[in-house]
């Protein structure tokens, strides 16, 4: 990965980035969260998201702000952004990172996140290439969207940012038409 990268884009929980610049790098720091890197090799477009938890159950009464954390929507935002940038859905390939079970006693939330992401990609027919999930250590992921190369390394000594309230679209969940 080039040390002379023109632009570094760091994303945090609840965010995604899609780029097609040759030297740009998207990076993130993951604990139990998941980052999915999508790449269209032909269009040379790549994108990465960073999300927490899986899909909500139908009987859950959740605030809309909570739902933003969920993968279904996070993945839809990333896929739509890729397609808007010119990627073809049928050409998308995915790499998957994170899902560590860092804090004992949380019921394997990291594993649940990873399982969700794998199930989502299978359901959507998106091939998963590299996958580095599980374990008990945080990961730093650097993704070069132009050629799809990813560097993922575990980081035992880096403090993870605390979970944050994700940003949600204005008017999320509600528009009063009538």
């Amino acid at each position: 990965m080039s040390a002379l990268a023109a632009r570094r884009i760091a994303i945090i929980q609840g965010e995604h980035a899609v780029v097609r610049e040759p030297d740009a790098i998207i990076s993130t720091l993951l604990g139990s969260c998941i980052a999915v890197c999508l790449h269209d090799a032909e269009a040379r477009i790549g994108g990465m998201n960073h999300f927490l938890l899986g899909e909500p159950q139908a009987d859950q009464q959740l605030r809309d702000v909570d739902l933003q954390r969920y993968g279904v929507h996070a993945m839809e935002l990333l896929i739509n952004a890729m397609m808007k940038a010119g990627a073809e859905r049928s050409r998308l390939r995915a790499n998957l990172y994170g899902g560590a079970n860092i804090i004992a006693g949380l019921g394997g939330i990291g594993s649940a996140n990873a399982a969700f992401a794998k199930r989502f990609l299978t359901t959507e027919g998106i091939t998963v290439g590299q996958s580095d999930t599980g374990g008990t250590l945080a990961r730093k992921v650097e993704f070069r969207p132009y050629d799809g190369k990813v560097r993922c390394k575990t980081v035992a000594d880096r403090p993870l940012p605390p979970p944050i309230t994700p940003r949600i679209p204005a008017g999320c969940g509600e528009i009063e038409l009538f």
Binding site: P56, A58, D59, Q60, Q61, L62, R63, D64, L67, Q68, Y70, V72, H73, E76, L77, N80, I168, P169, A170, G171, C172, G173, E174, I175, L177, F178
Partner: peptide
Amino acid sequence: GSSDREIVQKAAALGVNNYLVKPFAPAA
């Protein structure tokens, strides 16, 4: 996924019955 005013207005003009912005709770 967006509460873009232009889309909402277009949908309303075409006679959409209701409109929901993702992510939404099932109850919504």
